[in-house]
């Protein structure tokens, strides 16, 4: 049963991250996920210091607030003339540094495992269960990440046209009367919510990997946004399955293995994708050369 829960949590994280990752890829903002997953640290620490509990609800709120602050600051610096990648770098490093300083200032009061927050282990999720009305309802992570996934899917489905237009051609979207900034912040809020909800249970490396790699794989396999989203969900779920079983064989970190198998799938797509793969393009070129000569 534990196997099932871990794979389920991994698949849920993978699908909710990769749906959003597709939009990040086409908007060329992939590293924002990495930034958010680091800069929420002071929010988590502050929530812990204020409430004094390790309950996940205040921590989620604190982290989500910091996620939005990160996005806001990046936007602010960018509009004042700093290049976007540098703005991302400045914001997340300074917030992360603030978090570490806070942890070391209050290290006596907090029993705070920095490593656990950053490299949280998906293997422990089956034991952190929740009960609803006295009945065991399975691991908490399944509920948190699952509701996140449902929220993402509903919003993306409802506003698919708007999100698509805003990502590909923001000026056209603005001319058509779509509130571009609103959809930008909506997408960013979904990303920070998903990041925070997932890495509370599985650690940041899995979240960052799943935001970027499956979506990039799907980007190489299809030319339509809707199909790309479906493919990336498939790749995400597949890599969490392969990752889990390879982790049991190797006896290694499950999150690490899930990311590594996603990377492996990406490598396969890079080489053998029917339309954009390295090998298929090479073969095509040779064929056309032969037909010429």
């Amino acid at each position: 049963m534990n196997d099932f829960w871990i794979i389920l949590v991994g698949a849920l994280v993978a699908s909710s991250c990769s749906v959003l990752g597709c939009f990040l890829i086409v908007r060329k903002m992939t590293l924002i996920g990495d930034a958010i997953s680091h800069s929420v640290l002071p929010g988590i620490v502050l929530a812990f210091l204020i409430t004094g509990t390790r309950d996940s609800v205040p921590m989620l709120i604190g982290a989500a607030a910091l996620g939005l602050l990160t996005v806001f600051l990046i936007q602010l610096f960018q509009s004042s003339g700093v290049q976007s990648d540098a703005a991302i770098g400045i914001v997340f490093t300074s917030l992360f540094a603030t978090g570490i300083v806070l942890v070391s200032l209050y290290t006596q009061q907090i029993d705070f495992d920095l490593e656990h927050v950053l490299y949280g282990e998906i293997a422990y999720t089956p034991w952190n269960t929740m009960t609803i009305g006295g009945i065991g309802a399975g691991p908490k992570a399944v509920w948190i990440v699952g509701s996140c996934l449902i929220l993402n899917l509903i919003l993306i489905f409802l506003f698919f046209k708007q999100f698509k237009l805003v990502s590909f051609d923001p000026s056209l979207a603005a001319a058509m009367g779509i509130p571009v900034l609103f959809f930008h912040y909506l997408l960013m809020s979904l990303i920070s919510l998903t990041t925070v909800a997932s890495f509370d249970s599985v650690g940041s490396i899995l979240v960052v990997g799943m935001l970027i790699i499956p979506a990039a794989t799907a980007y190489l396999l299809s030319d339509r946004l809707s199909r790309m989203i479906l493919v990336s969900i498939g790749v995400g779920i597949l890599s969490s399955l392969i990752g889990y079983y390879s982790a049991t064989v190797l006896d290694a970190s499950i999150s690490g293995c899930m990311v590594s198998s996603a990377a492996l799938l990406f490598g396969l797509a890079f080489l053998f994708s029917p339309s954009h793969g390295l090998v298929s393009r090479f073969l095509k070129r040779r064929k056309s050369k032969e037909s010429h000569s």
């Binding site: 590293l31 960052v208 790699i213 190797l250 970190s253 293995c257 990311v259």
Partner: peptide
């Protein structure tokens, strides 16, 4: 940007696997 992200997360994920090994 995506290339940076892909290399970052896959190297680090692979590194975590080796670290646990």
């Amino acid at each position: 940007d995506a290339a940076l992200g892909i290399v970052l997360s896959s190297f680090f994920g692979f590194g975590i696997v080796m670290l646990t090994q």
